[in-house]
Design a protein around this nucleic acid. Structure first.
Lengths: 120, 120
DNA sequence: CGAATAGGACACCTTTTAGTGTCGTCTTTG
DNA sequence: CAAAGACGACACTAAAAGGTGTCCTATTCG
């Protein structure tokens, strides 16, 4: 499924993302996985699973989804599969949310005025 | 339904969010709704529905979810219900994603080196 | 007033999600 | 080399998500 093209180089672990990054990040378990991988920079499934109250299979599925979104890469090392964070796709979310920044700023300036008028 | 507790406070249109903002934003339809509301600043269900290829009921459900996440507020005006953007809860996402910023920055510094070696 | 418009409230359906457990295979290690 | 460890691949399940259509009530408007 995911082609491992290692041409001289660097990561290239997956075909371009097949899964919406917003969706990938919607689940708390998956956010926690990203967090864990941010700390250790590489970790096998077994180790990751230890931090959750669910089975290995479930965690594996979550990691698959993260991979589909391009948020993690994996490589086999001996009998274990090591996962690694790839935060780049999160840029899409950052750009998206940045647009709305102005709205909650504006809102705060209106707020004082609002409070002096009334409440609903 | 939604209690208006104004205890010394601010905004206050809904009981505190009962729905994960990440989840609320995971659906493309709901992101488009936020977009639409960003443009017009207030719009009735009927008008919003016009921009989608789904029934009024479906759009209404999406708006309910956005409300539960605190991302929109609504008020009845005559026979219509007008919805309004409240972007503030998105701050949580912004803060969250900001943390990962450093990871793709690091990546970018590797990129230049990468480009000088080859391209795919 | 009566028709049309806007929308809430359900009941219902199909697909996806998020889990589980089991089995087989490869890798390590005593 | 045999047992244990780490996974991938299924098959399966319960619940949630994302739609639909229908009915009923308020509100507007000719």
């Amino acid at each position: 499924m995911s082609s491992l093209k290692d041409q001289g180089g660097v990561i290239v672990n997956e075909t371009r993302p097949t899964r919406d990054v917003y969706e990938a990040v919607a689940d708390p378990t998956r956010r926690k996985l990203l967090q864990l991988l941010a700390d250790v920079e590489e970790s096998p499934l077994n180790e990751l699973t230890r931090h959750f109250e669910m089975g290995r299979t479930a965690v594996s599925k979550h990691l698959t989804i993260l991979k589909e979104a391009g948020l993690v890469t994996s490589r086999r090392v001996g009998r274990e599969t090591r996962f690694k964070l790839n935060a780049a796709p999160l840029k899409e979310i950052q750009d998206w949310v940045a647009f709305y920044n102005k709205f909650w700023s504006v809102r705060l300036s209106h707020l004082k005025q609002l409070l002096e008028e009334e409440e609903e």
